[in-house]
Computed example of a mutant assay.
Amino acid sequence: MTLLRFLLCLFIFVGALAAAGAVVLSILLMLSFPPLLLAVMLACWILSRLLRLLSSDQDNPN
């Protein structure tokens, strides 16, 4: 059981490390290629507008 818990913690650590590396790499890529940064910012803005629209539809069922 201890070995299983160790392997689980090891896989979680490796996954978190890979995710952090992917975030840092994507940020560096966005800073070196400005149109990609613009596209990500536009996608985040569209997503926030869509989520706000969907949440207001759930509040008002008409």
Rank of each mutant, 00 (worst) to 15 (best):
F13N: 07
F13W: 07
F13A: 15
F13M: 09
V14Y: 06
V14G: 00
V14M: 12
G15A: 15
G15K: 09
A16L: 15
A16N: 11
A18P: 01
A19R: 10
A20Q: 09
A20R: 11
A20Y: 12
G21H: 09
G21P: 04
G21C: 13
A22L: 12
V23Q: 11
V23M: 12
V23E: 11
V23W: 12
V24W: 13
V24H: 08
L25Y: 14
L28Q: 14
L28W: 09
L28R: 15
L29M: 13
L29W: 13
M30R: 13
M30L: 12
M30T: 01
S32E: 13
S32F: 02
S32I: 00
F33L: 06
F33I: 00
P34K: 01
P34D: 05
P35K: 04
P35N: 07
P35C: 03
L37N: 05
L38N: 06
L38I: 05
L38Y: 05
A39K: 06
A39G: 05
A39L: 14
V40E: 11
V40Q: 12
M41C: 05
M41P: 01
M41S: 14
M41G: 14
L42C: 02
W45K: 04
W45T: 03
I46L: 15
I46E: 15
L47M: 08
S48I: 04
S48M: 07
S48Y: 03
S48Q: 01
R49V: 02
L50D: 11
L50W: 10
L51E: 08
R52K: 07
R52H: 02
L53V: 00
L53A: 15
L53E: 07
L53M: 04
L53W: 15
L53I: 00
L54D: 04
L54P: 03
S55G: 00
S55R: 12
S56T: 01
S56I: 03
D57L: 15
D57M: 15
D57E: 09
Q58T: 02
Q58M: 04
Q58N: 01
Q58S: 03
D59G: 05
N60V: 02
N60H: 14
P61W: 05
P61H: 04
P61C: 05
P61M: 08
N62H: 08
